[in-house]
């Protein structure tokens, strides 16, 4: 039983990762894809932070009376990852807005249809 509980955090991480991956692949809407990417990222945060925790420890702020701290290194790495994630998100959403300006749609199917129609008319014209 204790071994099963020991792997619970990995199970949650893997479920979130699979859900994020599924949203990215299965949904044609570009903004929905960005949400899926966000869920994928948070699952990676959990993957890094969860092993750093020690039961009975406290946050890694040195104070008298405490001897067990959680590992500070993953926290630092994930702080950087969160900020980089928001930068990627902003860039992706800007791309989606630009695509909406050019095609009038943020659905993958409609964009592909328009592209195919353009290529077909060009072939007929030339």
């Amino acid at each position: 039983m204790s071994t099963l509980a020991g792997y619970f955090s990995y199970a949650v991480t893997i479920f979130l990762l699979v859900a994020g991956l599924f949203i990215i692949i299965a949904r044609g809407n570009l903004i929905k894809k960005m949400v899926g990417l966000g869920i994928f990222q948070t699952s990676v945060y959990l993957l890094y932070i969860a092993p750093g925790k020690l039961v009975g420890g406290t946050a890694p702020i040195i104070a008298p009376g405490f001897h067990v701290y959680s590992n500070p290194l993953p926290h630092v790495l994930i702080l950087t990852a969160i900020v980089v994630g928001v930068a990627t998100l902003a860039l992706g959403l800007a791309l989606a807005v630009r695509i909406h300006e050019a095609y009038g749609s943020i659905e993958e199917d409609e964009i592909l249809e328009q592209d195919n129609a353009d290529a077909g008319s060009k072939e007929r014209g030339g």
Binding site: A59, P60, L79, I82, V86, A90
Partner: peptide, 23 residues
């Protein structure tokens, strides 16, 4: 709950705040 207070603060401010505004 996992003792990552700095990360939790950043996630609440950036993930729930700035990301939502961008979306």
């Amino acid at each position: 709950a996992l003792d990552a207070v700095d990360v939790a603060m950043t996630e609440a401010a950036v993930g729930a705040g700035i990301s939502t505004v961008l979306f």
